[in-house]
Write a protein that binds this DNA or RNA. Sequence first.
DNA 1: AACCATTGGTTCACAATGTGAACCGTTACC
DNA 2: GGTAACGGTTCACATTGTGAACCAATGGTT
Lengths: 273, 273
Amino acid sequence: MSSAAKTLELLSHFSTDRPQIGLTDFCRLAARDKATTYRHLQALESAGFIEQDAETKRYQLGPVVLQLAQVRESTVPRKQSAETALAALAKATGETAHASVLSGTTMYTLASCESLEHSTRAILDVQTLPLHATASGICAVAFGPDDLKVAATQNMEKFTSTTASSAQELSVAVDQARTDGFAYSNSSFEDEIYSISAPVFDLSGGYAGSVSVACVATRVTEVLKATIRQQLATASVEITRNWGGTVPIDLQKTWDRTLSLHTPLTQNMKAAS
Amino acid sequence: MSSAAKTLELLSHFSTDRPQIGLTDFCRLAARDKATTYRHLQALESAGFIEQDAETKRYQLGPVVLQLAQVRESTVPRKQSAETALAALAKATGETAHASVLSGTTMYTLASCESLEHSTRAILDVQTLPLHATASGICAVAFGPDDLKVAATQNMEKFTSTTASSAQELSVAVDQARTDGFAYSNSSFEDEIYSISAPVFDLSGGYAGSVSVACVATRVTEVLKATIRQQLATASVEITRNWGGTVPIDLQKTWDRTLSLHTPLTQNMKAAS
DNA sequence: AACCATTGGTTCACAATGTGAACCGTTACC
DNA sequence: GGTAACGGTTCACATTGTGAACCAATGGTT
């Protein structure tokens, strides 16, 4: 592992829950020597990635990350162009909507939007999402590049009792996603969270990310699931359009079939032609 | 220079003008060996800071920077809480308003807002601002921590014919800023741009950043300057409040004096008590 | 088709840079 | 006034970084 990688790794320990970190804490989190950690922090600080609170001596993210984010968004405007669709999705479903993007073989959460309808709701921290344990991840494996299957089985950390722990289990979920057009996860990453995802595409024509709805598991019914699938399809089309792509026609047909199969009250008799 | 610092430095070459960079270009920009640069890029890529376009093989900023920015903004909400004031400032002055923050001895642009009033206007790229050559920087030296004076004289790159190139010249500008409550720069960083800045404070009680108006130099008149000063004082008070600080009372008095001295039509006879 | 220029990527001998146990000074809490 | 926890520093040691030279692929030129 390169020294630069170790240095960058330090930044990943910041989160909204832990926005300021002291030297000793960093040593614990990174499991590294104090002197080493200190040097790394110095490098980050002199580059503007972090700054030190003059009083508490603790470190926090610096202004440079805002600049980089601005450049990224002005180049590849993913986040901003997904947000309105997410808001609509959260409103229509009454649950938490979020979008994630694939970079390499890692899924990153991009934005999330909570519905105000219920007092209990899924809360997502900004983080990376494991491929094997989340609806977003399974969606990526199902509709993304082929190497993701391998990457997913590489690290199958068991987060909960229902986390897939073998390539077989994963395959079942992926196959389901392919036949349904939607990926599911039932408390397999975080307890009591049921998620459904749909893929989003960009101008390269390939899979770019997932749009998902995370529900409080106890609230899930077949009716809610049907609503979510319906809304996810709409949201995926919109975000895909914003990202310069188009939803593959056969996926659209898959959605149509799935939606008509599960519509609670028979009202929609169109089948995939 | 640490290897990590060299690696991080690569990221600074991204900008809205140059959002994608190839390996060879990086070598040129960073003046470093190809193998070295490649390893650095690999480290950045595996940490999610950059991603490679599969077709063109060029690199661009990755999703991680968005997450970091989100954490930073949710912790220290500088950018968002400055934006409404900047919009008002741009609207009231008809010129480009921007805010910048100090981290260590470096000034970083945080946000900018262009007025739509004129077809020609100042355009600011996201970048770091030299202390000796910009109104924001001089403002920082005048109202910020003492070590900035030294830092400013350390690197006095001559950007234009009017860039301050000696500690004396800088001192004059800084003294002017202290007696006026506003800092000025006349085409000293970019040609044809005249800027005025006011300091902004945060909850530590000290200088935190500058709010500025950048004008097309040919449009500057005494009347416009008076308007800008007036609006800057208002904007500084508002942003300072958003950042949890208060504008020092003696600075307020300085502003009052300056504003009354320069008010074109005698209407404001109050002097500093 | 042979040529050259340019690109991204890789190898390996060499040495610069990174490493961590032990250390110092300060603060804060019994 | 002992001591524990913190941020920061030193120095002998070795892991890690370095860049000239190399390879393979692409694309334009003669």
